[in-house]
């Protein structure tokens, strides 16, 4: 019963946060200057009718939420409009149908563009995160168990260096080494114009393209995970119940696996969830360096083109994924630590 209340409470808060983000996200892009029609104004060949047509196409001819002649909602002024015909409610209505508007740049639905890019990013980020979490946690546990030995210091210095490397710089260096020494592809997701006999070969080609960006991603994140895991495990190893476990005659491996790991995973879960949420946004730097057609790259391009609907959609996607990742972390937390369920 208590468990249910905890669950509902967390889900409720996630829902409210998403509603707030939708509001903020909508008005943020209405406050920013510029729209495609105004950009077109500089072109003398564009007729007034054409400009009006562009505005109508993107729904910019409608009032944002009302005419704002007065702030008193009871006296809406002369240009009273049907609230359902304002940009805000049209936006919310579209959102409920899963539509995120039309890109100023490509004239295609933003939702379609985001979904295409999302899978590429998930592929890259997923591979990188799984690798860096696995390696980082393993290294962290080993370093903590071998604290203040050569193994520990080597792992510590290595992780600090990896963590402090600028991502784009590391990407360029790996790109250079990987393409020259190992002959790996340097850009994109598949070889352009490639002709593949079967799906297996196509995936092999994608895999080869994935190696360098994934490696960059892993190196960037592994240091962070290792350092945090090391310090948490060190804390846990000084707890009394670890001494109890030793006194029980358990082996080093059993102590680490059954007593240290689960207790140390608590802070890790939070950090991993936060990172996962943010990296759905795409490792913008990595995708740009390696021309990986992911979300990050398209956000980077959309900023340059002032493609507001695209950015608005991407921001919403990022925010929702961060909120969901946090929700999952909260739920995992209550699974890992029975004390959370009780309070």
């Amino acid at each position: 019963m208590r468990g249910h209340r905890y669950l509902l409470n967390k889900i409720g808060w996630a829902f409210f946060t998403i509603v707030f983000v939708i509001l903020l996200n909508f008005f943020l892009f209405r406050v920013l200057p510029g729209d495609p029609a105004r950009a077109g104004l500089r072109d003398p060949r564009l007729t007034v009718e054409a400009i009006e047509a562009i505005r109508a196409r993107f729904g910019l001819d409608k009032p944002v939420i009302n005419c704002f002649e007065t702030l008193n909602p009871l006296r809406l002024g002369s240009c009273r409009v049907n609230p359902l015909q304002t940009q805000f409610f049209i936006y919310v209505g579209n959102l409920l149908r899963g539509e995120l508007g039309i890109s100023y740049h490509t004239n295609r639905p933003v939702a379609h563009m985001l979904v295409e890019r999302l899978w590429n990013t998930v592929l890259l980020v997923g591979a990188g995160q799984v690798l860096s979490i696995f390696i980082g946690i393993t290294l962290g546990i080993i370093a903590a168990w071998k604290a203040r030995t050569t193994i520990d210091y080597t792992a510590l210095v290595g992780s600090l260096m990896a963590w402090s490397l600028p991502t784009f710089w590391l990407g360029i260096i790996l790109l250079f080494i990987g393409s020259r020494q190992l002959g790996l592809p340097i850009a994109g997701k598949v070889t352009p114009g490639g002709n593949f006999a079967n799906m297996w070969e196509e995936w092999l080609d994608i895999g080869r393209h994935l190696i360098l960006p994934t490696l960059t991603f892993t190196i960037v994140f592994v240091g962070e995970y290792m350092l945090i895991m090391r310090s948490t495990v060190l804390d846990v190893l000084s707890e009394d119940y670890i001494l109890t476990a030793k006194a029980k005659g358990l082996s080093t491996f059993q102590i680490l696996k059954d007593h240290a790991l689960r207790n140390s995973m608590l802070p890790m879960v939070t950090i991993i969830a936060l990172n996962l949420g943010f990296t759905v946004a795409g490792a913008i730097q990595i995708e740009t360096v390696f021309s990986w057609p992911g979300l990050g790259q398209s956000i980077f391009e959309a900023v340059g083109r002032r493609d507001y609907p695209m950015l608005q959609g991407a921001f919403l996607l990022i925010a929702v994924s961060v909120i969901l990742a946090n929700l999952i972390a909260d739920l995992l937390y209550s699974y890992l630590d029975p004390r959370v369920r009780a309070s």
């Binding site: 119940y241 476990a245 006194a247 358990l250 630590d337 004390r339």
Partner: peptide, 24 residues
């Protein structure tokens, strides 16, 4: 010595709150 521990000589620590693993 690991085989001897607890089987022949067991230990009750001070402060059982911390001597028991809170998540098991």
């Amino acid at each position: 010595i690991a085989d001897v521990r607890w089987k022949e000589m067991a230990m009750i620590f001070q402060g059982a709150m911390n001597a028991l693993n809170p998540v098991r």
